[in-house]
């Protein structure tokens, strides 16, 4: 648990008794300090938030206007705001689509990784085929067309080309 999660639990009615929070407070002096600082407010809020509002209370005073046009406008504006700034909740279809996209991406990534590894395994063979047929000493321009023009490759081409001749 991190300190952010600890704050979430500390400031929720159910979370305050969470054993994970107690464990975190045991090892985190910063959060312990925070809880000490906030404890009067947390205690009062926990007690004050449990006022009993039973459902058999009268629903209204009976005299105030129950619904104003202003209130409906507020509700409509809130719905508009929500659509403009919010991200729609994931529906089952969207969730399925997201999973499919992730799986497809994973598959593409897997194939790409396989392809990357395969040329790596084949590379010495391909390079050696190219280098064995023509010697860089004899044709220096070949170096420009080499897939890997590092010093190591150049030396390797020399070895591959000349060592067998020397041995012979």
């Amino acid at each position: 648990m991190n300190c952010d999660r600890a704050f979430d639990l500390m400031t929720s009615a159910d979370g305050q008794a969470d054993p994970a929070l107690a464990r975190h407070l045991g090892i985190c002096p910063r959060c312990r300090q925070m809880q000490d600082t906030l404890s009067p407010a947390l205690d009062w809020l926990s007690a004050g938030g449990t006022d009993d509002w039973s459902d058999d209370r009268p629903a209204t005073s009976g005299t105030a206007p129950l619904l104003t046009t202003q209130a409906v406008r507020v509700a409509e504006a809130a719905a508009r705001d929500l659509s403009q700034r919010g991200t729609p909740m994931p529906t089952t279809f969207r969730r399925a689509l997201s999973i499919a996209v992730v799986l497809l991406f994973g598959a593409v990534l897997g194939v790409a990784a396989f392809d990357i590894r395969r040329p790596a395994a084949d590379q010495p063979q391909a390079a050696s085929v190219g280098l064995l047929t023509t010697c860089l000493w004899n044709d220096p321009a070949l170096r420009l067309r080499m897939p890997d023009a590092s010093a190591q490759s150049v030396v390797a081409s020399c070895v591959v080309c000349h060592v067998p001749q020397s041995v012979r």
Binding site: R57, L66, L67, V72, V74, E76, A79, L82
Partner: peptide, 26 residues
């Protein structure tokens, strides 16, 4: 009492404006 009236008004306003709400949002 004022709070009860306000809650009632909130719920009624939501009901009256239900057509404008997009259920894709929370």
């Amino acid at each position: 009492v004022a709070a009860e009236d306000l809650v009632q008004e909130t719920l009624l306003a939501a009901y009256a404006a239900r057509a404008t709400f997009n259920p894709q949002f929370a």
